[in-house]
């Protein structure tokens, strides 16, 4: 098994915005090794979310190749991309995006149900994950009955309960206050350091960047800085 979880080679992506071509990514090379915690930073329109979406199989590059855990994404059909996301990737979204009609426990179990994990194993893993993230008391509450921070913790639990090879987080702190953001980041760092979860997050929040051990800065669709540093 390669030590690289993500390998993007010379990828470009151009959007049509009101018939005006917008070059979101230009000839980008980007790799992520197993166990890294990487932040993609940059102003709006820099291409960080586009890069995250391409790595996550939610978008396709116009040129270049993408590999995730040794699987080339360019050749995959839409249904194979769905399966790749289901089995290899975990997503944490800016707006939590939990299923509002399911409880925290059911939300965490949801992906395992999609994967066909048997009920007994599913319940046990969901309980353990909620306890690990300190939200076991929220297990029976629905998203509308929880705070933003609690919802985001449930979203993280849902994303990592299936042991994905890569956790992708798009602006995970955008709707959180600084205290809750810090708690979330400590949690992500713990998952990265103690459980070896590979994390790539797109953000323009300096606090999030400070927790990542590698910062990649983008501007106008190009990587302008890629540096490893001591995390906060």
């Amino acid at each position: 098994m390669s030590d690289l979880v993500v390998r993007c080679h010379s990828i470009s992506r151009t959007y049509q915005d009101d018939s005006v071509p917008v070059r979101a990514l230009v000839d980008v090379d980007f790799e992520v090794a197993r166990g890294e915690f990487v932040s993609l930073a940059g102003p709006s329109g820099s291409g960080k979310s586009t890069l995250l979406n391409i790595i996550g199989g939610l978008d396709r590059p116009d040129a270049g190749t993408v590999e995730v855990d040794g699987v080339g994404l360019n050749q995959l059909s839409e249904s194979d991309l769905s399966d790749l996301r289901l089995h290899k990737l975990g997503f944490v979204f800016q707006a939590y995006n939990l299923i509002p009609v399911l409880s925290a426990r059911e939300n965490v179990e949801f992906i395992m149900q999609l994967q066909g994990v048997p009920a007994g194993e599913r319940h046990g893993r969901a309980e353990a994950m909620l306890e690990e993230l300190g939200i076991e008391s929220m297990a029976d509450r629905r998203p509308g009955e929880m705070s933003g921070g609690q919802q985001q913790r449930v979203a993280v639990a849902r994303a990592i309960v299936t042991h994905p090879v890569l956790l992708l987080a798009d602006e995970p702190s955008a709707n959180l206050d600084s205290t809750t953001t810090e708690e979330l980041l400590k949690l992500l760092r713990r998952l990265n350091e103690e459980h070896g979860v590979t994390i790539v997050t797109a953000t323009h929040d300096p606090l999030v960047m400070s927790y990542a051990r590698r910062q990649v800065r983008l501007r106008d669709g190009r990587i302008i800085e890629d540096s490893a540093r001591e995390a906060a």
Binding site: V71, L84, H87, K88, V101, Q115, G116, V117, T162, V165
Partner: peptide
């Protein structure tokens, strides 16, 4: 789904449980 996509993960593959969809449908 091709084995290449999930071959290295430790989770079991399987279809969506019909009951899950039914339950979400009802609550929705």
């Amino acid at each position: 789904m091709s084995e290449a996509v999930v071959g290295q993960t430790d989770v079991r593959t399987g279809g969506v449980h019909g009951f899950l969809i039914v339950r979400i449908g009802w609550r929705n």
